[in-house]
């Protein structure tokens, strides 16, 4: 009888050891850091507008000049027309700005603005910040893009 207990005890001991080793190995693996909010649609800082931001051709290609679409709606859902838009940004973890100076180049109707001249030169966490002035007032929004 006593010997069975010994087996169980030894088994338990080994199991604990194994779990410990596995945990140690797991902890040593590079941890996926909890990323920034990468949603492509959000309210602007003071909730004046609903903004969404998408690559015009659907895909992001590192190292190429690309145009994106910034779509602006009022909180009530009406398209925002005639907005003046400023663009800035950079890589928060490398404390450097954007490698290009993107601009709002065209209004495509329906609250959609073409933001041209965007280039992501490296993988990692990028931020694009838009200052938006329209009839409803001025507000800003930051989009995080992780490549």
């Amino acid at each position: 009888m006593a010997s069975i207990w010994r087996y169980i005890l030894a088994g338990l001991g080994l199991a604990v050891l194994l779990v410990g080793i596995v945990a140690a190995v797991y902890l040593m693996l590079p941890q996926p850091t909890p990323g920034p909010d990468i949603s492509r649609s959000k309210s602007t800082a003071n909730r004046l507008f609903e903004a969404s931001f998408e690559p015009e051709r659907g895909v992001i290609r590192q190292g190429e000049l690309q145009s994106w679409l910034l779509t602006l709606k009022t909180a009530a859902g009406a398209p925002v027309e005639g907005a003046a838009i400023t663009v800035s940004g950079g890589m928060p973890q490398h404390d450097h700005g954007l490698p290009t100076s993107p601009q709002a180049t065209d209004y495509l109707g329906d609250g959609r603005y073409r933001i041209d001249g965007i280039k992501f030169t490296m993988s990692g966490w990028w931020q694009l910040r838009f200052g938006i002035s329209a009839a409803a007032g001025s507000d800003s929004v930051v989009f995080n893009i992780v490549l």
């Binding site: 000049l65 450097h96 700005g97 954007l98 490698p99 290009t100 100076s101 993107p102 601009q103 041209d116 001249g117 280039k119």
Partner: peptide, 13 residues
């Protein structure tokens, strides 16, 4: 000419 058009023209970087 988009590279020229959208180049960074100033700033500390």
């Amino acid at each position: 000419c988009r590279e020229l058009r959208f180049m960074v023209k100033d700033g500390p970087q």
